[in-house]
């Protein structure tokens, strides 16, 4: 393998990795507040892309994306209010099953609204074939956009959960709901807020990856599996961990492809996930105790 080719594989890994990471981060917000995995997260990503494509027919791209993010946040709020808010003392298992149901529901509604065709946003910079030369390898400018959005998300969510009162309240809510309630925190409202925020993050991810991956009503599941994988690998609730895990997984996949038939790509990544879960159940970068009562 020559140097330029090796860098090209690295760039491919970076592309995969940032897509996984940007999707994976969305899992963290709801987890940080409720301790559950929202299995409809992939559908938020799909909705973001779909709505942005529809809005882009009448609005310039930045406004279309902003509109899509806001609209998806409203959807996130509605979903929480309609399906989850009224559940008294929902168990983790029950909430997971509810979110799986929601993901199926959103997918079917999307099929009714947008049909089965793939839709695509234009590249934010350049077009389908433009590329930036990087030490003999070529990288699409859209990948740099994904990297930038990823970085911004990490910075903002970390700052939010570490240093704002609201963010700390949300974390308190996850670590001990009863305790948080005793302290007078509006738990139900915080849970709603967590759905709104994570819907917004998912939608933004959906918009920024859409030129690369396309958007189709059923694309959420596939993306969510990879996003979920990196969220677990990185340690649930840890945004920086998700990015690191995403890049690691992407680069491993890319170099796997360089040596083995493509079919082994997912075999390797799932084997790694299983290995990590066995040896370090809290993820590579997670806190030691991640289990919840």
């Amino acid at each position: 393998m020559t140097g330029a080719l090796a860098i090209q594989y690295l760039v491919a890994g970076l592309t995969y990795g940032t897509i996984y990471a940007v999707v994976g981060m969305g899992f963290n917000i709801i987890y940080n507040t409720t301790g559950i995995i929202n299995f409809a997260q992939g559908e938020f990503v799909m909705l973001g892309g779909m709505i942005a494509v529809s809005l882009h027919a009448i609005l310039p791209l930045p406004l279309a994306i902003a509109g899509a993010v806001l609209a998806t946040m409203v959807v996130g709020a509605l979903i929480e209010l309609v399906f989850i808010h009224w559940l008294s003392r929902p168990t983790v298992l029950r909430m997971i099953i509810v979110t799986i149901g929601i993901s199926i529901l959103i997918r079917e509604v999307a099929l009714l609204i947008w049909g089965h065709n793939v839709r695509v946003l234009p590249y934010f910079t350049g077009n389908e074939i433009s590329a930036i030369d990087l030490l003999g390898a070529r990288i699409s400018p859209q990948v740099l956009w994904v990297v930038a959005v990823c970085a911004a998300m990490v910075a903002l969510t970390t700052a939010f959960f570490q240093w704002t009162m609201l963010g700390r309240q949300m974390r308190a809510c996850a670590s001990n709901q009863v305790g948080a309630a005793v302290c007078g925190l509006p738990i139900r409202r915080l849970v709603t807020l967590s759905f709104v925020l994570s819907a917004g993050m998912g939608a933004l991810a959906g918009c920024v990856v859409c030129p690369i991956t396309y958007t189709q009503y059923g694309m959420g599941t596939g993306l969510a599996i990879k996003g979920f994988t990196v969220a677990i690998l990185g340690g649930l609730g840890n945004s920086l961990g998700a990015v690191a895990a995403g890049l690691l997984l992407g680069i491993i996949e890319s170099f796997t492809v360089s040596q083995l038939p493509t079919a082994f790509k997912d075999t390797v990544s799932i084997a790694i996930l299983l290995g990590v879960l066995l040896l370090r159940p809290s993820g590579l970068f997670g806190a030691r105790v991640a289990t919840r009562a």
């Binding site: 393998m1 080719l5 090209q8 594989y9 760039v11 491919a12 890994g13 592309t15 995969y16 897509i19 990856v209 690369i212 991956t213 694309m219 596939g222 993306l223 996949e253 890319s254 170099f255 492809v257 360089s258 038939p261 493509t262 079919a263 790509k265 997912d266």
Partner: peptide
């Protein structure tokens, strides 16, 4: 001869093999 996942989201690495 490469077989790829029908749900793939990006295939840069596969295509790099083509380049090689």
């Amino acid at each position: 001869s490469e077989v790829y996942d029908s749900k793939a989201t990006d295939l840069t690495a596969e295509v790099t093999k083509l380049k090689a």
